[in-house]
Structures are given as C-alpha cells and as structure tokens.
Design a protein around this nucleic acid. Structure first.
Lengths: 152, 152
DNA sequence: TTCGGTGCAAAGGGTTTGCAACCTG
DNA sequence: CAGGTTGCAAACCCTTTGCACCGAA
C-alpha cells in the first residue's frame, strides 16, 4: 500500500471509521487524482460508474467525513464543490495555483496573511482564502489560451 | 436619488436594461445592505416577502444580470452564493475582510498577487481570490468569540 | 408600439435523509 | 456480535425554464 493511502487508513482507524470496500475505492480514486481538484459530481459519477450499485449517499457522506478528519481538502470556489486528497497530512499551511484548463494544483510557498492583518486593528482574523487561477506552464505551452477555456 | 443608485441606473440604461419596479426595489435593498454580503436565498425571501407576487425568476435573473454589468459583486466562498452592491463602480481592485458574526465587509488596500507570480514561471496567472475572515472590532468588543459563532 | 421583463408553476440538478439490510472490526 | 455503513428511493432545496401576459421607453 502506498504511503499516502496508509496514512489515510490510519486516520480512518483513529477516528473509528471502518475501512469498507467503498471507502477504499474512494481513497484510491482520490489518490490517483491527488494532483488535481475534482468536482464532487464527477467523483460521484465516476464511482457509481466504476462500482455499479454505489449510492450517492455513500459518495457524498464519505467525502464529507474524509474532509472532517483531514483526508480530503474541499473547495467551493467558482460555484462548484471540488475535492482533492489532502496535500499534506501534517496540515502545513500553504496555498494553491489552480490551472483552469487541466485542473493541476501547484502549491505555493508563501502566505499573504502577514501583509494584511496590520490593516485591521482590533479585529480577530481567524481564517482566509487565497487561490490563484490561470494556465499552467504545460497547458500554455500546448497552445491553450484564456479565450479557449470553457466558461463556468 | 442617492449617488450610488444613480450610477446603477445609468449602468442599466447603458446596457439596455429597463428600470422596472422590481429592479428598483432590488437595487434599494442592495444599496441598504451595501456594507454586507447577503446570501441570495435571503435576498429572494426578503423580496418575495416585501413584494408579494415577485417571482424567484425575477430575483435570480436580475441578480445575475446586475452581476454581469458590474452593479453587484457575487461571491461563493463557504458554500453559499452571496451578493452585495459593487463597492467601487470603477472596478478598482481590492480585497475583503468579512466579519463572520455580523457580515460586515472591510475593504483592504493591498493585493497579495505580486508576491506570488514569481513562483510560477511559464504560467499565466489570470485571476485570484483572496478573502480574510474573522471578527470585526465591534463584534469582538461586544464579546463575541470564535466559539460562539454558529457553524455554517 | 415594441421588446424586454414579469409571474406562475413546473422541471432540473445537486445533495441529503430514512431505514432495513449488511459487513467490518 | 454490535455498531458503523450501505443501497435505494424519495425528499429537499436552490436555481432555472417555458410561456403567455405586461409595461417601460
């Protein structure tokens, strides 16, 4: 079993979550696609296609549980709910650059927070979101342009 | 007519959009709440309550049209679609600090973009999202704590 | 007068629920 | 075995559509 899968399974165990066939399949899908966000509808469709009989219930509830225990990162930017394997199970803080063509996620090594809190005296800044969008080097080199992207 | 309303009406005219009773009422609601994001469901409920007979159709389509012509800012952070009057009709770039208790929006005067693009050679960064969340000075002073917030 | 806008009601699409049967640990 | 988990199907909620009527410019 690959290292990230082992970690995920350990997290399940620690949280009294059983490792069912369905959860294992879900984990493998997420692991395979760990470099990208995948929208939940796509995950659901894929799982139900690959494993006939699997219910919406199972896919949605498990993704939510995985998110709660830190196996999955969830993201609702741009009106779609998307998920991906947690980049870093140790919860090291980072941000993402997301290619709008292929969905590839690049981790960024800097956090903009420090520059802003000084502007909000007396406030408690408890959270923030920060994401960059665009075209990754590969897609750009392949001739994809901003104009050629499908809208929404 | 207040200045922001005049501006909004001018934008409508410029885009060949008629100023109907319904649109006027929507604009007034948005203007009244221009310091906060309001989620779309709440806007819809309020308008239909205040103006019996108004349809979902009208509320949703108009909010979308307002957004397209720049009268309204839309935001889907945190799984809810929210709208507010455009802070700045001249589209000056800025970011927000959003109080999670009262919803007040504070505009920030700095953009973190410049610090990040250097990390993505060969990529086209075409957009970004950045928002801070927390408790504004008033709510904090009033004794609201992070723990006392209602979860989503 | 003329299009654009509206209300109504129904359809749509994504997500959640209830519950009996099932299967990990 | 026991309690967590699943499949099924229906319910739910938010949003969009279709269409005949209405009204701002």
């Amino acid at each position: 079993m690959t290292e990230p899968l082992t970690t995920a399974v350990a997290i399940l165990r620690k949280n009294n979550l059983k490792l069912t066939k369905q959860r294992h399949a879900l984990l493998e899908f997420l692991l395979t696609n760990q470099a990208h966000y995948t929208d939940v509808v796509t995950v659901d469709a894929y799982m139900r296609d690959e494993f006939p009989g699997m219910s919406h219930n199972t896919v949605y509830r498990n993704l939510k549980e995985f998110e709660e225990v830190g196996i999955v990162e969830q993201n609702t930017e741009q009106e779609r709910t998307r998920v991906k394997y947690q980049c870093d199970f140790h919860h090291q803080h980072h941000h993402h650059f997301i290619c709008q063509n292929c969905g590839k996620v690049t981790e960024l090594q800097m956090c903009p927070m420090d520059f802003f809190t000084a502007q909000l005296p007396g406030c408690d800044v408890t959270g923030h979101s920060f994401e960059l969008y665009g075209l990754c080097a590969e897609c750009k080199a392949a001739g994809v342009t901003e104009a050629s992207l499908v809208k929404n």
